[in-house]
C-alpha cells in the first residue's frame, strides 16, 4: 500500500525549482552567475567573459534537456514496447476489444432495465452475501490491526520488548505485506474448503503487514516520556504500551485501520470471486449463468458499487474528524 505519510511530508514543503525560472529568464540567471564568477575572478584576477559564461550556461541547459529527453524517450519506448508485448500475448487484441468494451455493460444494463421490477428482490436476495463480504473485511481488519499493533510495537526502536529482535519482526512485517491475499486464500481454500474463513485469514495476514508498517511509523513519532515515566513506577511492558503509547497513537491507528477497511472490502469481494464466499462468489455464479440472468449480476454490481461509495464517504468523514478534530 502506498504510504500516505511520505505524501504528507512532500506536500508540506513544495519546492521552488529555480532551474525552471532560469530556463525562462536566461538574462537574470546570467547576471547572478556573473556576479558569482566575478567574485571568484577577484582571486584569480581574470576579466569575466560574459560570452563564455553564456556558452557554459547554454551547454548546461543543453545537457539537462538531453538527459530529460533521453529519459522521456526511454519511457515512451518502454510504454510502447510494453503495450505491444501485452497486446500480442492477450487473447483478444486492443483494437478489436476497444469497440466492444461497452457491449457487456450494455447487455447487462438493458436486461436489468427490462427486469427492473425484479431488481429490489435481487438486492434483497444478495444482501446476506454482501453482509458476509463486509464481515470478512471487518473481522480481517480487526484481527490484522490487533496483530499489526503488537508486531509494530515489537518492531519499533525504543518501544520494543526485545530490542535485539527488531530486525526479525521487521522482516515478518515485510513478508506479511508482500504476500498477496489471493495466494494464502487459495491454499487455505484447498485445506478448509470454500467459505469466509480462508478469506478472512488471508486478508488479516496482509493487513497485519500493511498496518504494522504504518503503525510503526506512527510509533516512531510517539513521545517516549510517558513510557519512561511509567517504567519508573514499575509498569510492565504491556502496561507501558497500553497506558503510555496508545493514547498518543490511538487516533492515527484508527484512521489507518479505517482506510484499510475500505481496501479490504474490495479485497474480500475479489477473494469471493475465487471461491471464498460473499458477494464475489455470487457474482461469479450470476455471471456463469450467462445471458438471461444478467439482472442478478446487475443487482450485485449495484450493491457493490453503492457499498464501496458509502463506506468510502463514511470513513473519509470519520478520518477527517480523527485528524482535524470534531470542530472543523
Amino acid at each position: 500500500m502506498p504510504d500516505p505519510a511520505i505524501f504528507r511530508q512532500i506536500s508540506s514543503k513544495p519546492q521552488v525549482h529555480l532551474t525552471a525560472f532560469a530556463q525562462i529568464l536566461p538574462v537574470r540567471a546570467d547576471m547572478s552567475s556573473t556576479t558569482q564568477v566575478s567574485l571568484m575572478t577577484d582571486v584569480s584576477a581574470e576579466a569575466p567573459n560574459v560570452a563564455d559564461i553564456r556558452a557554459d550556461y547554454a551547454a548546461l541547459i543543453q545537457r539537462k534537456r538531453l538527459y530529460g529527453g533521453a529519459l522521456l524517450a526511454v519511457f515512451v519506448a518502454m510504454m510502447v514496447a510494453g503495450f505491444r508485448v501485452a497486446d500480442d500475448r492477450n487473447a483478444g487484441s486492443f483494437s478489436d476489444g476497444f469497440t466492444r468494451i461497452f457491449d457487456y455493460p450494455g447487455e447487462v444494463l438493458s436486461e436489468a432495465t427490462e427486469k427492473a421490477a425484479q431488481l429490489p428482490g435481487h438486492v434483497m436476495t444478495f444482501f446476506p452475501a454482501l453482509v458476509e463480504t463486509l464481515n470478512i473485511a471487518a473481522a480481517a481488519t480487526l484481527l490484522g490491526a490487533i496483530a499489526g499493533t503488537v508486531l509494530s510495537l515489537l518492531a519499533t526502536r525504543g518501544l520494543a520488548r526485545w530490542p535485539s529482535l527488531i530486525p526479525l519482526f521487521r522482516r515478518v512485517l515485510d513478508i506479511c505485506r508482500a504476500i498477496p491475499e489471493i495466494v494464502i486464500a487459495l491454499v487455505l481454500i484447498f485445506l478448509l474448503g470454500g467459505g469466509p474463513v480462508p478469506a478472512m485469514i488471508a486478508i488479516a495476514i496482509h493487513t497485519a503487514g500493511a498496518l504494522g508498517k504504518l503503525f510503526s511509523e506512527v510509533n516512531e513519532n510517539a513521545s517516549l516520556k510517558p513510557v519512561e515515566g511509567l517504567s519508573s513506577v514499575g509498569a510492565s511492558w504491556a502496561q507501558r504500551m497500553v497506558l503510555g503509547v496508545f493514547p498518543q497513537v490511538g487516533p492515527n491507528y484508527v484512521s489507518y485501520a479505517l482506510l484499510r477497511f475500505e481496501i479490504n472490502i474490495r479485497a474480500s469481494a475479489i477473494l469471493g470471486f475465487v471461491g471464498a464466499g460473499g458477494i464475489g462468489y455470487e457474482l461469479r455464479n450470476a455471471m456463469s449463468w450467462g445471458q438471461g440472468r444478467y439482472d442478478e449480476a446487475a443487482a450485485i454490481f449495484l450493491l457493490l458499487f453503492l457499498t464501496i461509495v458509502l463506506v468510502d464517504q463514511l470513513s473519509g468523514k470519520l478520518r477527517d474528524r480523527l485528524t482535524y478534530g470534531a470542530q472543523s
Partner: peptide, 20 residues
C-alpha cells in the same frame, strides 16, 4: 467506486484473458 473486480470482469469480456 466501481471496484477493480468489476472492471476486471467487464474488460475480460471485451479483451479476453491476457496481460493487456
Amino acid at each position: 467506486g466501481v471496484d477493480s473486480l468489476i472492471w476486471t470482469v467487464v474488460l475480460a469480456r471485451a479483451f479476453g484473458p491476457g496481460p493487456l
